[in-house]
């Protein structure tokens, strides 16, 4: 059975009809064409599919699209604002925090939400914050660096 749902994705109201079993990750990627959200395991472990649901990070591969009817979603495509990259996006590039880039959208969403909660984290807090996301390329060292750098950029811009 199909369901008509309305999502606000990256600030844009989107109406879509999906079967009840449609995963949010598939809905975003295949129904709405927002392929920046990636699927690495489809069992909620790797974190590549992380998006922000009403500002909070969730695994879109463990979420049915129909359950988020009426909610706001931010994907990696919605992180940049005003034509420029967000501080987190800039920091990942500056610090070489990505290689193949497949896990990156999940990290970017996770870190964006984390720095909103904790704008000046210490090392342990950063490692803890990203410890639900798998990366097979970078060894995480430059991702950790990028999170600190993003915090720094945000502070500079706020100051």
């Amino acid at each position: 059975m199909n369901h008509a749902i309305t999502l606000t994705v990256n600030g844009v109201v989107r109406e879509v009809t999906v079967p009840g079993r449609r995963l949010l990750s598939d809905c975003l990627r295949h129904d709405l064409g927002l392929t920046g959200t990636h699927v690495g395991c489809e069992h909620g472990v790797c974190g590549a599919c992380t998006v922000l649901l009403d500002g909070e990070p969730v695994r879109s591969c463990l979420t049915f699209a129909v359950t988020v009817d009426g909610h706001e979603i931010t994907t990696v495509e919605g992180l940049a604002s005003g034509g420029g990259l967000s501080p987190v996006q800039r920091a990942f590039s500056e610090c070489h925090g990505l290689q193949c880039g497949f896990c990156t959208p999940g990290f970017l969403c996770t870190v964006t939400a984390f720095l909103r909660e904790n704008p000046a984290p210490d090392h342990e807090e950063v490692v803890e914050a990203i410890s639900g996301n798998l990366c097979r390329c970078t060894g995480y060292q430059n991702i950790v660096k990028a999170v600190h750098r993003a915090a720094e950029i945000q502070a500079e811009e706020a100051g």
Binding site: R29, L79, L85, Q89, G101
Partner: peptide, 19 residues
């Protein structure tokens, strides 16, 4: 030198197979 790949990969504009 900073990577020229990154601009598309950090904005969700990469094009992987399933995209």
């Amino acid at each position: 030198v900073r990577r020229r790949e990154d601009a598309r990969l950090v904005t969700g504009q990469g094009r992987y197979l399933d995209d």
